[in-house]
Write a protein that binds this DNA or RNA. Structure first.
Lengths: 187, 187
DNA sequence: AGATATGCTTAATATATCTTAAGTTTTCTT
DNA sequence: AAGAAAACTTAAGATATATTAAGCATATCT
């Protein structure tokens, strides 16, 4: 069975007919390493599920400094939620860390499916509730822990990603320079 | 009309009977300045809406350092969402910045109401989606902006709170010491 | 009103982190 | 396989932020 249905099955159980409708509204996309599926500054009207592979979301600020905002490993839902919900230009770029297979649903079909299938409305309510919690815990970590503690947290939280990302990307996720992270690791 | 219904009315419209059911499941609570409605380490099984007044959520780390995680002004929904959803001990304390009037709903009644009234499931889906966006933007700010820029953002984002909170609390929201914030302001 | 606690500011010194630059290793491209 | 590009490390000097401590102002308590 596809991972996406296992994922949805964690919080709700769909009838066969509902699952079929849902599936018909997704498109399956294969992307190569380094391909972008969201481009900062452009529109973003797709919500994605990572069936296999992994992604990194980053933001370039006005000085050209790159910040890694999040990672999306296998089994995650991901998009630039701000752009997706509000129709504003994307603040993020989303880049494949490796060859990946994803499911994508447009904003229009997302609205349709949560309207037609109340159980999916529930599913996404729980999903966003958990996403909110996750981000809030990250804010807490960011303002109350040392860089070293946050680095150890990262290693613990994303053990499978560690081999797929560069030091530079980890540093930009932690909000420090690669040089500083390098000197931290020496200890 | 009570603010809470105006707030809900932003995203859905309730029938009279639904509004009556909803209202019957909330309790109205009046709290005095400095009272805590959530205590770090204890259970937190209530979701609150701030009808009037304002709150500050903070976390004490193992060294006793206090970090302000969020502010909840009038017209906001607030709780320790992690504790509320997962039943784990609260990581936050939530303190009234002034005399406040709030609506509170228990986890049990929350589950009941999103089950009985699908429109409220939608309401909370949208609410959490927006909360997730807000936290993600804050993470972006925190790792990509300077302290000075984040201070100016705070003043801009919460103009009405500025008079109600101390410098120390703003500093702990930004993740810097009060002394450093004080020297920033001199410029 | 007086006493006490709390908050704000300032300054000196200490620590964390950045910037720049160079050298080395790894990965990508042809 | 060779060359080019990107990543990683190291170190010196610069900047941002923390720590400590003192003094003053403001709020709180009796």
């Amino acid at each position: 069975m596809e991972l996406i249905f296992k994922n949805i099955g964690k919080y709700i159980s769909l009838e066969k007919s509902e699952a079929d409708l849902l599936l018909s509204l997704f498109q399956i996309i294969t992307v190569l390493k380094k391909e972008l599926i969201i481009n900062q500054g452009r529109n973003c009207d797709m919500l994605f599920f990572v069936e296999s592979g992994s992604f990194r979301a980053y933001h370039l600020n006005k000085d050209g400094k790159e910040s890694t905002i999040m990672f999306a490993p296998e089994d995650w839902w991901v998009t630039d939620m701000n752009a997706f919900l509000n129709g504003t230009p994307s603040l993020l770029s989303l880049e494949a860390l490796e060859e990946s297979k994803i499911y994508g649903i447009s904003r229009k079909n997302f609205d349709l499916v949560v309207d037609k299938i109340p159980k999916l409305e529930r599913f996404f309510r729980i999903l966003f509730q958990r996403a909110y919690i996750r981000e809030q815990l990250r804010v807490m970590d960011t303002i109350s822990l040392t860089t070293e503690e946050r680095y150890l947290n990262f290693l613990h939280k994303y053990p499978n990603l560690v081999q797929k990302v560069t030091q530079k990307q980890i540093a930009s996720y932690l909000g420090v320079t690669p040089e500083f992270l390098s000197s931290l690791k020496k200890k």
